Computed example of a mutant assay.
Amino acid sequence: MNEPVPLRPEDRAAFESALSKALAAPDVRAALGRPGAPHTAGELRARALAAADSLAAEASPEYAALLDARSGPAPGASPAGGTGARAAVAVLTVLTPLLSIAAAVIFLLLGYGLRVAGASDPLAGTLVATGWTAAVIAAVTGLAAGAGLAFTAARHRATQGHAQPAPDALAQAHAAWLHALVQRALLPHLRRELGLRDSTPDFTDTPPAPAPGPAPGKRARLGYSRPDFASPDFAGPDFAGPDFTGPARHSSE
C-alpha cells in the first residue's frame, strides 16, 4: 500500500486548477444553481483548499509517479568512507601543486643565492636540485589536477543530462495525476458536500453509442410501402365472363 505523499507547494496551483475543473462539472453546477443549495461555489472552493492534503492523498500513487518522473533516476548512495577518501584526494590534488611550486621557488632562490654569494658548492647544488625536483612535481601534479577536474566536470554534466526526465513522460505523469485528482478526490468530495450521489458518471466527453442497424441479409424499407393485395383471379372455374352480346333484336312484322 502506497503511503500518502504530502502535496508540495509548487503543485498547489495545479490543485486549484483541478478544483476549478471539478466545480465546472454539470451536476455540480446544477446543484449549485438550485434554490437552497447547502454551499456556494466559493465556500466549496475554500473548504477543498483547506483539505488539500487529505484530498490529494486519494491520488497519491499518481502523485508519487509524478515526483519520480521529475527527479529522474536516483543516484546510487555512496558510503561515508568513500566520500571522505574522495574529499581527501581532492584536497591533496589541489594542495600538492601549490606546495610544490612554493618549495621550488624557495629552494631555487636559496641555491642560486648561495652560488652568487660564493658559498659552499655542495649545499647550493643540493638546494638547486631540490628546487628543480619540486618544480617537476608541481608541473606533473598540476597537469593531473587539471585533467581530474575536467573529467569530473564532464561526468557531472553527463549525469545531469541523464537525470532530466523526458518531457513526454513528465507531461503524461502530470496529466494522469490531475485526472485521478479530479475523478477520485475532488468530484466525490464536492458531491458529498452538495448531497449528490457519488455514482454520477464522469463529465468527460464520450462518443455516443451507435444505433443498432438492420439485421444482416435483410433490406430495410424506406418510406411508404403499399399494402399487399392480390388481383382477382380471372382464370377460376367460377368466373363468368361478361355478356358482350347486344340487346335482343325484335323482328318487325
Rank of each mutant, 00 (worst) to 15 (best):
R29G: 14
R29I: 04
A31E: 12
L32F: 13
G33A: 11
G33D: 14
P35G: 01
A37Q: 03
A37C: 15
T40H: 01
A41G: 06
G42K: 06
G42E: 13
E43A: 11
E43C: 04
L44W: 01
L44D: 01
R45S: 02
A46H: 00
A46Q: 04
L49F: 01
L49Y: 03
A50K: 10
A51E: 11
A51Q: 03
A51N: 14
D53L: 04
D53T: 02
S54C: 02
S54E: 12
L55D: 00
A57T: 02
A57L: 09
A57R: 07
E58T: 05
E58A: 15
A59G: 12
S60D: 11
E62I: 05
E62Y: 14
Y63C: 06
Y63G: 13
A65T: 02
G72A: 02
G72D: 01
G76C: 06
A77T: 09
P79T: 13
G82L: 13
G84V: 06
V89P: 11
V91L: 08
V91R: 10
L92E: 12
T93H: 10
L98Y: 10
L98Q: 02
I101N: 00
A103T: 07
V105I: 10
V105K: 05
F107Y: 11
L108S: 06
L108N: 05
L109W: 04
L110I: 05
G113T: 10
R115C: 05
R115M: 11
A117G: 09
A117E: 11
S120M: 11
D121V: 15
